[in-house]
Amino acid sequence: MRNNTKEADGKGFPLRITAVEVRVVDNPDATNVGQREIDFVKNMLPVLDWPALVQAASQLGIPTLPPQLTEQLAQDPAFLQALYHILMNVHLVKGMLTCPASGREFPVTDGIVNMMLEEEECERVRV
């Protein structure tokens, strides 16, 4: 997601997260994460924007992601398990996403982000 109105001038990403309520789905047994989940994460790695993810995770209170994604890590099952947990089990329930360029705010309520634009913003959407 990003703010792609003209105000953001192509710099509407990544959105800054202000968390009011974060829900972490408990996974008492980390070994529960099976091969299917690991495959899912491997599958997603090429499309992840790593710096954006690191920033988002730290804004959600998880400062432990390494700044660089190395080849070695990408093959490490323990790392992939932990990453799966961060990607799929940490939910922003209530908070705000803020466009880094324009300051436009998008509220999150009950885990649903509202990115509806005003009519005059729609006319300036860049693709």
Partner: peptide
């Protein structure tokens, strides 16, 4: 889930 028009964001 994203509340938005089509897939604009």
């Amino acid at each position: 889930t994203i509340q938005c028009d089509l897939a604009t964001p």
